[in-house]
Amino acid sequence: MNRELTPKMNPTEQETVHYEKRDRLALIRLDRPDVANAIDPPTLQALGESYHRADNDEEVVVVVLHAAGPDFSVGLDPVSFLPTLQARTYSPDGPGRINPFGTTTRLSKPLVAAVQGRVGAMAHELMLAADIRVAASDTGFSQGEVSRGTTPAGGGGLRMPLEVGWGNAMRWILTGEPWDAAEALRLGLVQEVVEPGRQLARAVALAEMIAAHPPLALRETLRVGRLAMEGHAHQVFAELVPALYRLLGTQDFAERLEALREGRDPVYVGR
C-alpha cells in the first residue's frame, strides 16, 4: 500500500494493476515495483479494463493514475512483449477495455497522472494521455524508441509535438536522451513538480477539486478540447502500430537484438 494514502483496495483480476474507488475518484495503480513497473501484456490489458470500469461507473468523476515503488514505469517489458510484437498480435484494444493511450477509444473523464522516478517510452505515452500531470522532482523522462530501432506506437510521437512544438519534441525523441522534471515543467509536459513522495497527494487534491464540478460539463469540455487538439491526428493514430511492425521486420532491428546478445555496439545499415 502506498503510504501517501490509506485506501481500501479493490484489485482488478490482474495483480499488477489495482483499482480503488474513493468517493468521486477512481485511483488506478501500477504495481510491479520489483521490475520498475515494466508493462507486460497482462498489465496493459488490466489498465484498459480499469479505465473501462472507471468510465462506466456513474459515481466516478475523475481518474488518477499512479504507481507503486520508486519508479512510475520504465515502459514496455521487452521480454514479455517481444513474442506478441513479432506475431503481429499486439493491441491495446479489446472488449471491456479502453485504450490506455487514447489513440482509438479514450477515457471520457478527466485523468490526472502522478509520476516519479523513471518514466520511459510506453509509460511516457500513458502519461501523455493524461489531462493533468504531477511529477516528483526526481522524475526522469524518455521517449527513446528510435535508439532501439522502433518508433513510439502509443501516440508519443504525435502528442509530444502537439504539446511542446515540433523542435522541442524532436530534440528528445530523435536523440533518445532522457530529460528531467525541470525540463518537463519548462516544456509543459507536466503541470506541477513537487517534492518526492508528494506527487500522489497533490494529484489527488487536484482531482478532488475537479470532481466538485458537474460531471457532464467536465466531459464535454474534454471532448471538445481534445477534438480541437487531436482531431486531425486520428487518421495518423491508425498508422502507429503498422509503422512499428514495419520496423520490427528490418535488418537494423535484427542487428540491434543480435548486438545485445553479443554484447557489442550495433552497426546499422538502413535496411
Rank of each mutant, 00 (worst) to 15 (best):
E15Q: 09
E15G: 13
V17Y: 15
H18R: 14
H18K: 12
E20Y: 14
E20Q: 08
K21T: 14
R24F: 12
L27D: 08
I28G: 03
I28F: 09
L30R: 09
D31F: 14
P33T: 14
P33N: 06
P33F: 03
V35P: 07
V35C: 14
A36L: 09
N37D: 12
N37L: 07
N37F: 06
N37I: 13
N37E: 10
A38H: 06
A38Y: 11
I39V: 12
I39M: 09
P41R: 02
L44H: 06
Q45Y: 05
A46W: 03
A46R: 00
A46P: 04
L47Y: 10
L47S: 03
L47H: 06
S50T: 06
S50Q: 04
S50R: 00
S50E: 10
Y51C: 10
Y51I: 06
Y51A: 10
H52T: 02
H52N: 11
R53Q: 13
N56K: 05
N56P: 02
D57H: 02
E59L: 11
V62G: 05
V62M: 09
V63M: 07
V64L: 02
A67E: 06
A68W: 01
A68N: 13
G69I: 02
G69D: 02
P70D: 00
D71K: 04
D71I: 10
D71S: 08
